[in-house]
Design a protein around this nucleic acid. Sequence first.
DNA 1: ATAGGGTTACTG
DNA 2: CAGTAACCCTAT
Length: 299
Amino acid sequence: MGAPKQKWTSEEEEALRRGVLKHGAGKWRTIQKDPEFSPVLSSRSNIDLKDKWRNLSFSASGLGSRDKIKVLRIKAPSSSTSPSSQALLLPPPDKVTEASPLADSEKSSQDGKIPNSMIIEALYEMRDPNGSDVDAICNYIEQRHEVQANFRRLLTTKLRRLTAAKKIEKIDRAYRITESYAAKASIAMKSLSPKKDLAKPLKASQNVGLFAATSPALDAAAAAAMKVADAEAKAHLANEHMMEVERMFKLSEETESLLTLATEIYERCSRGEVLTVLQVAQNSFEFERNSSASSTVHA
DNA sequence: ATAGGGTTACTG
DNA sequence: CAGTAACCCTAT
């Protein structure tokens, strides 16, 4: 790690990460112009942001320079549940077609089957209290994922199975997540909720969406927990989500500050960035279990 | 405006 | 002298 020309400060890096988190990787101009980051990133051009992000990405993906694409393999989620090594290696926010076999279970994004989590996710994010019919679900997933020709048929089959498993219920022609399953998921999520106490009254005072009770944030939490509970739900983590999570995880490890993590989780949660929260939840959950009582956060 | 290849400059 | 990070150039 050299220290050449106009070296990026940690503030600038942080601003960049948050910018990517907020606007997505690729919207460099947008990030640069965002009043939230422009003070810090004023001396950086959109191209600088792009280049920096590229550097960060490749260094995070494991030592490689950018022209040497390293093929990294992600361990199968189902087999071992070792807490710490969940996502120590991760692909850059670029292409990196991660085509890991992942055992014999459901996982492949293209030619495989439909993961349960995909449907749960879809149902959840559509947030229709009356449930969503097959068409809606089908359309929703098709817009978010590449699907195969007989996708719809597979979907209906899967829906039937989930219904039988009492994870979802069918009302008229609409499907929705069952209360029991949602509740179970919420309970799982409570493992994370103590962090809300650690989160300082930061911006928290504004976005009063604590994990507490009947708030949209709880919805997000429940959605997150569902994925956690679903175990092998780390399907398509190929991109900057995991990238960001990994960064934060290391950060919190290094500084031994759960506060940073908690604050981020909270902010994202309040912002409704469910998908990102999911990833954070998984990692922080394990982090908590590892460091148990040792992690005394000094606010 | 962005992605990606290429170049320069700094570090160990 | 190799590796890396910042910077530059160009096609899309």
